[in-house]
Design a protein around this nucleic acid. Sequence first.
DNA 1: GATGTGACTGACC
DNA 2: TGGTCAGCCACAT
Length: 109
Amino acid sequence: MKNSFYDDVYAVVRLVPTGRITSYGAIATYLGVKSSSRMVGWAMNLAHTQADVPAHRVVNRIGLLTGKHHFGFPNRMQELLEAEGINIKNNQVADFDKLFWNPFTEISI
DNA sequence: GATGTGACTGACC
DNA sequence: TGGTCAGCCACAT
């Protein structure tokens, strides 16, 4: 099924460049459902069935790897991010402000 | 069909 | 400044 909320989430997440990250709220806001940022988290949960969706590049608003436990092993998400050149400190992205990928700025809705 | 839960965020005390 | 509360919607039981 296309044109659904989840497909839009996947589409945006797929646009996140390597070595960059974004937040659930940013995606939700970009899709016009900022109040339902939790749905983005659920979308990520279902995104596990979508191999093309880099869910590890999506973190919460402070850069915390809240969803790392959903990657099978807690270290998986961190290793994936580090493999892309992103430094992780205490389950949190060190340069979150610099690496943050803003859909509004990059996609220019 | 109703209830509970969740990878969040913003606002309030 | 920091902790707590409520809202949001879809999926699972």
